[in-house]
Design a protein around this nucleic acid. Structure first.
Lengths: 100, 100
DNA sequence: ATTAAACATAGACGCTTATCTATATGAAGT
DNA sequence: ACTTCATATAGATAAGCGTCTATGTTTAAT
């Protein structure tokens, strides 16, 4: 498995605030101002977090008028779940190369 | 859900080298010297990574003679999988508090 | 055209992290 | 007792991260 790539996904969501953002988006699309209401930090900080989530392929953005609409990437979820399975299970891709 | 706690688990495995360590341990118990053979870094660096994995409850250690035997904590795997489900699914614990 | 609202970018600051070298500890064999 | 092997600890360093303030950009409304 590609540890570097999986590592990037994990690092992107391993911040407690970004975890909450993903959790909020798991219910559906939200704009930045709606997201911001759930946090104590400033608007530029949210912008920074959203950029990280986008660059990791976790979230996609679409401008609608003045608003940025953020949506969870379903491809990320399936990819992530696949990586988790590969990591914990003793499969043929395991780094130990043992034949269980 | 407890974002702080889940964040600690994620940060502990979000290093590519520690991902590989977990992947290696998913096949069974290994000692430090066996693990070290799979990496380029030094022994103190491995010791550092193992400490982080232990403190996160991901790995347990047991001394057998001169060797430290490391084992993946099954409780971590179930806990982790549970957290992942809660995060991505639109459940009653979701931060948005919407009733889907 | 101005203004206001929503969001992004730039730069700075303090804290954390991954790695190293050097050294300590602890168990086992001679 | 001394040495050797396996592992841990200490301290240093460089890079990365989360946050802030200040400012820029873009869209829409007046």
């Amino acid at each position: 498995m590609d540890y570097e790539n999986f590592s990037k996904q994990l690092k992107a969501i391993s911040d407690p605030n970004r975890l909450k953002i993903v959790d909020l988006l798991s219910c559906g699309t939200l704009c930045a101002c709606d997201l911001l209401e759930h946090f104590e930090f400033t608007q530029p900080t949210l912008s920074h977090h959203m950029k990280i989530l986008q660059e990791a392929g976790i979230v996609s953005a679409k401008r609608v008028g003045k608003w940025q609409h953020y949506t969870l990437e379903t491809s990320f979820i399936t990819d992530f779940n696949k990586n988790v399975s590969t990591l914990f299970e003793n499969g043929p891709e395991c780094a130990c190369h043992c034949k269980k």
